[in-house]
């Protein structure tokens, strides 16, 4: 798939995204849609239960319309098996990170306290028509997240991150630049180098393969690191309110 990413990166330099043919414009996204829309049929042995809040949440977004509705297209139908993320992680959100409207982050916290930093669905980068030009883990002249090295069971040598610490800067073909922040205090385990070669996975699978970084909070802070963050429900309310405000005040 690498070839067309490169191809489009070349192409978008010349074309405004609106001019792209519909099929191509969706090219990067079609996969993501399929992944999110694909129904997970009930398991042969009725193994798993769906988390109630998930389907309700998705349905309420469905009503809210807009971009997210597509992701939730299947939400209202048969109970589905929970995904990898739903099985092992709790979703936490931070809206308008660093005061920048809509730059929402999603933190997946594993039951073992490990946090995976991802972009929330509502992040501008994941909206239709955005093309990522480059991802840069060099956050200042003398600090690159790519230099992070951890060793041993106790992960010596990790860079320490505060809530506001930048992880990377992502620039788009439209000239916009977005900074992804850690949102949780902890030590940096790794950043996702796969998205450097193939930025499109960030948009195709933002909450799995397109993650930004893995952060290990301090053991004693494993509960408190998520205190200032929004729950999934709160986040959905924020998004709904945001959409309503937009339609009221055009």
């Amino acid at each position: 798939m690498g070839w067309y990413v490169e191809f489009w990166e070349q192409l978008v330099v010349w074309f405004d995204w609106k001019l792209r043919p519909p099929s191509a414009a969706g090219g990067g996204r079609s996969h993501a849609h399929e992944a999110r829309c694909a129904r997970r049929p009930p398991l042969p042995r009725g193994k798993a239960e769906v988390r109630g809040d998930l389907s309700v949440g998705l349905r309420s977004l469905d009503l809210a319309g807009a971009e997210l509705a597509m992701a939730a297209g299947a939400g209202g139908i048969a109970p589905a098996a929970p995904s990898l993320v739903d099985r092992y992680f709790t979703r936490w959100y931070k809206a308008d990170v660093k005061g920048k409207p809509c730059e929402d982050h999603c933190i997946l916290q594993h039951s073992n306290r490990i946090c995976v930093i991802t972009l929330a669905e509502s992040h501008p980068l994941l909206q239709n028509g955005k093309t990522i030009k480059s991802i840069n883990y060099q956050i200042s002249a003398n600090c690159s997240r790519l230099q992070n090295k951890v060793s041993g069971k106790f992960k010596r040598g990790a860079q320490f991150l505060t809530e506001l610490a930048p992880l990377c800067r992502i620039s788009c073909s439209d000239g916009e630049e977005y900074t992804v922040s850690s949102c949780v205090r902890g030590r940096l385990m790794e950043v996702n180098e796969n998205i450097l070669d193939k930025p499109s996975i960030l948009q195709e699978k933002p909450s799995t393969e397109g993650y930004i970084a893995v952060v290990l909070p301090k053991f004693e802070e494993s509960k408190s690191v998520t205190e200032g963050l929004l729950t999934q429900k709160e986040y959905e309310e924020v998004v709904v309110k945001r959409i309503n405000n937009r339609s009221e005040t055009p």
Binding site: V150, G152, K153, V214
Partner: peptide, 13 residues
């Protein structure tokens, strides 16, 4: 295989 996330808290990366 990178050390799975589910055991990363107690095993070296």
């Amino acid at each position: 295989q990178k050390t799975p996330l589910r055991v990363l808290h107690r095993r070296p990366l």
